[in-house]
Amino acid sequence: MKKLFSSLAAVVLILGIFAPSVLADSHDQNAMVRVLHASPDAPAVDVYLNDEAVVEGAEFKAATDYLEVPAGEHTVEIYAAGTKGEQDPVISTTVNVEAGMAYTAAAIDNLENIQLKAIQDSTEATEGMAKVRVGHFIPGAPAVDVGPIGGDALFSGAEFPMVTDYLEVDPGSYDLEVRTTDGTQLIDLSGTNLEAGKVYSAFAVGTADNPEVLLLQDSAAMPTMMPATGFGGTADSTTNAWMYAALLGVLAMGAGFMLTRKRSEA
């Protein structure tokens, strides 16, 4: 909990270099990718994956939910909104995604130096604990610590454009702050609610003068299978039971009539 994570220890995976895949469920042929617009002075953008629009008109600070894409290499092109076909993309690159893995593809830095940063996201929640990591996507801002206001840093020395390792913390409400390594508060995050079984990425975005934090969910506690929510009592089989029972009932009735008639004749 109190363990410090230096920016050097941060897991920042460069495009195309990803950890071996661990197949989790039956959707494992696919990877999950979400897109984050973290370039403070870039216009709204359209994101194309293999020439198909997957996001349109995403503005600074917008994040998509995870989209499922087939594993493998994909061409990612980001255009200023509505300019595909008229202008060159602001970013054109390829990403390689592995089945069963989740990634954040973040457009970072100022427009002048805009680049796509791909990060691998955790898909594993820890029961009863919250997991959180911090990304520094504020171009021109100094290295930062993140921790309770006035308290020991949970994450320290995160530099642009690094993303720290995940840290397990007790669930609950935290009065956190993002501060420079010499203690000057940059962002007040009082009342940050971290739920048990959730995995979060807190991405600091914006400019040095106007910094903000986006808290995204990377994963959550999930069951391994869907609930069993029916016993079949209204399926057609019930009708069959009715029919058989009715048939037997009619037979018994007939038998009963014959018996009583015989008896009365006797």
């Binding site: 198909e52 997957v54 996001v55 994040a63 894409v69 087939p70 956190l176 934090v213 808290l215």
Partner: peptide, 24 residues
Amino acid sequence: SLVSDQLEKATIEQNYTPAVKASS
């Protein structure tokens, strides 16, 4: 198929949700 559904359509605006802030 979730994948073809998302990739074949021209846009998938329903998948685009504005991000929320920590203090939200």
